[in-house]
Design a protein around this nucleic acid. Structure first.
Length: 257
DNA sequence: ATGGTAGATCCTCTA
């Protein structure tokens, strides 16, 4: 089976891209971030016609996440449990995998703007709450997949300019410590289970020909719990839709189990 | 030191 994650930067603007991508890549589950629409505006019918059910946690203008699935999903939970958040950033559900049922957590992590800002402080509090919640989730669900736009480039090799961008947003020690804390919970970066091309990124700035120059970051990730590692067959980034007209600034990441 | 682009909403904010 295949599970994918894609920050679409407005589902209204990107619905046709999502439908075209699913037609070419009929994954079992697709997790979306940055819907930028409310639940009542979610294109349930168009996605149902493509063969997908949806669990949605929308928000006007900003944020918003959804889980699309060919098979029914169960026990949908919105937000980080125990953390009051005005933003719609996390949706989780139980899905079926080759190793049995698993918990799937889809997150649009806080961007954080720059160290020293209120938004960065929010990012740190959000990441602490996520870690504390996931620790409990993993105890209850040893099979767990954490996907989404993490807004963290975990290592220098995940950035086109790790020296010039040292300690700037996506690259700070504090953010990377938080990423490692997730790994210390028993999660594994599935992308790094395999040999990958150098300069593999999942996001490129729209500005200054970022994609054309491959000035990107790997900030979209799929982490799997230890119990799922033996089932992981591949993890890839699909750059194809980043080349389409009017693309999202992110590319989909695909996990094969 | 700044700007460049994109999306949604409103003429600015977020990324």
């Amino acid at each position: 089976m295949r599970i994918a994650t894609w920050n679409v930067n407005s589902l209204t603007a990107r619905l046709q891209h999502v439908l075209d991508w699913l037609a070419a890549n009929p994954v079992d589950v697709l997790c979306l971030q940055e819907l930028k629409l409310t639940d009542d505006k979610f294109p349930l019918d168009a996605l149902a016609a493509a063969g997908y059910e949806a669990a949605v946690f929308g928000q006007k203008t900003y944020n918003g996440v959804a889980i699309l699935s060919r098979a029914p999903v169960q026990d949908v939970v919105r937000n980080i449990v125990g953390f009051t958040d005005e933003h719609s950033r996390v949706i989780s559900a139980t899905i079926e995998t080759p190793l049995g049922s698993a918990r799937l957590v889809n997150g649009y992590f806080v961007n954080g703007q720059a160290p020293g800002t209120d938004k960065f402080d929010y990012k740190m509090r959000w990441l602490e709450a996520l870690r504390d919640w996931l620790q409990k989730e993993l105890q209850a669900n040893p099979r767990l997949v954490l996907v989404g736009d993490f807004n963290i480039a975990p290592e220098d090799r995940d950035s086109f300019d790790p020296v010039g961008l040292r300690e700037t947003i996506h690259h700070t020690t504090q953010e990377r410590d938080h990423f490692r804390a997730l790994l210390q919970l028993g999660l594994v970066d599935s992308f790094r289970l395999f040999d990958q091309p150098e300069k593999s990124y999942s996001w490129w700035d729209y500005r200054m020909l970022g994609y054309q120059k491959n000035r990107g970051l790997r900030i979209d990730h799929i982490l799997v719990s230890q119990d799922l590692v033996p089932a992981v067959k591949a993890c890839t980034i699909d750059r194809v839709p980043r080349k389409w007209a009017k693309p999202s600034d992110h590319a989909p990441v695909i996990l094969e189990l």
